[in-house]
Design a protein around this nucleic acid. Structure first.
Length: 87
DNA sequence: GAGCTGACATGTT
DNA sequence: CAACATGCCAGCT
């Protein structure tokens, strides 16, 4: 990957999150290769409206849903169906 | 080219 | 226990 930007890696990691599991922004940042880019991960999700990226499976380290393009309410619903457990 | 903003995290007050 | 302040990275103006 010549143009491998951090955002490309983040999107790939989030897209690889198995259904029924959730990852924190920190975990995604680490998985992408930047343990200090938790904030950037959130910014990337916001700027990237890709339906292939289940950003609803990405939560904060506290377990709080955080934000979502289609509304945090929708995110909580999806987490309840896929994660089975909601904070 | 530089500066501001923001879907976060951690520590201290 | 809760609220405030600081540090980090990437994207947009």
């Amino acid at each position: 990957m010549t143009h491998s930007s951090f955002r490309e890696h983040v999107l790939a990691v989030v897209r690889a999150i198995p259904r029924g599991s959730t990852m924190t922004y920190k975990a995604v940042a680490v998985a992408a290769g930047n343990p200090h880019a938790a904030r950037a991960v959130g910014a990337i999700m916001k700027t990237n409206y890709d339906p292939n990226i289940p950003c609803h499976r990405v939560v904060r380290s506290d377990g709080t849903p955080g934000g979502y393009n289609r509304g945090s309410k929708r995110k909580r619903e999806l987490l309840r169906e896929e994660g089975g457990v909601v904070a």
